[in-house]
Amino acid sequence: MFTQPTLYLGAMNGQHKITISGVVFYVEDCCQKQLLNHLAAMNNFRKDMPLDERVAEVLLDELKAVGKDVISGVEVEHLIQRTKHLRQPD
């Protein structure tokens, strides 16, 4: 009656759905932990100002520039390079 879904193991990276400042992003498995660690580090040092809006803006710009819908390691690396100064205390 019902067909079993076909699994494509190794053909695609898995994706996770995360929400940053009310914006839903899809992130590949391989870079999800790196992105979440970077966000946590930024928020630990900058408790006086919310940085989630800036991060969401940078990620949206990055995805729009390359015409993609899913955040990969390249986009996470670009985000870190553009916001690494926000991870350090004043």
Rank of each mutant, 00 (worst) to 15 (best):
N37S: 14
L60C: 09
D48K: 06
V74Y: 04
G10Y: 04
A65V: 07
R54A: 14
E57D: 12
Y26R: 13
Y8M: 07
C31I: 08
V58I: 15
Q88A: 13
Q88F: 12
E57L: 03
L79A: 11
C30E: 14
D90W: 09
M49V: 15
Q88N: 07
C30H: 02
D48R: 10
L7H: 07
H16F: 14
M42H: 04
G22A: 07
R87F: 01
P5D: 12
E28P: 00
I20W: 00
L60G: 04
R54V: 14
V58F: 08
V70E: 03
T3E: 11
N37C: 09
H16L: 05
V58N: 07
V76N: 06
K84V: 13
V70R: 06
D61Q: 05
L36R: 09
V66S: 12
A40C: 07
Q32W: 01
I20H: 03
K47W: 07
G22M: 06
L39R: 08
Y26T: 12
N43I: 00
M1H: 10
D61E: 11
Q4W: 11
R82N: 10
Q81C: 12
E28G: 03
C30Y: 03
L39C: 15
L51Q: 13
K33N: 08
E57K: 03
L63N: 04
D69F: 08
A40P: 00
A11W: 05
R46D: 06
T3Q: 06
P89E: 12
G10A: 06
S21E: 14
E75I: 05
E77G: 07
E62L: 15
V74H: 09
R87M: 07
G14L: 09
E75S: 12
T83D: 02
V58S: 06
V66Y: 02
V58C: 10
K84P: 00
V76M: 06
H16W: 13
V58H: 02
V24E: 15
D48V: 02
L36E: 09
D61M: 03
H78C: 06
V55F: 02
H85P: 00
D90V: 11
N13P: 01
N13G: 03
E77P: 01
R82G: 00
Y8N: 09
E57N: 06
Q15D: 01
I20K: 01
V66F: 05
T19Q: 13
V58L: 11
C31Y: 08
L36F: 02
L36Q: 12
T19D: 14
G10R: 00
L86T: 03
E57S: 13
A41R: 11
S72Y: 04
E62N: 11
V76E: 05
L51P: 03
K17M: 06
D52N: 15
Q34N: 11
H78A: 13
A65R: 10
I18G: 04
I20T: 07
K84L: 09
R82H: 05
N13S: 15
L39D: 05
V27Q: 04
P5W: 04
I20D: 04
M49S: 13
R87Q: 10
Q15M: 13
L59I: 08
P89K: 13
A56K: 00
K84H: 12
H38S: 13
P50E: 15
L86N: 00
H78R: 14
C31W: 11
G67I: 10
L36S: 04
K64S: 15
E62I: 08
L79P: 12
Q15C: 12
D69N: 14
G10S: 08
L63V: 09
L79N: 03
N13V: 08
C31R: 10
Y26L: 15
D29W: 04
L9M: 10
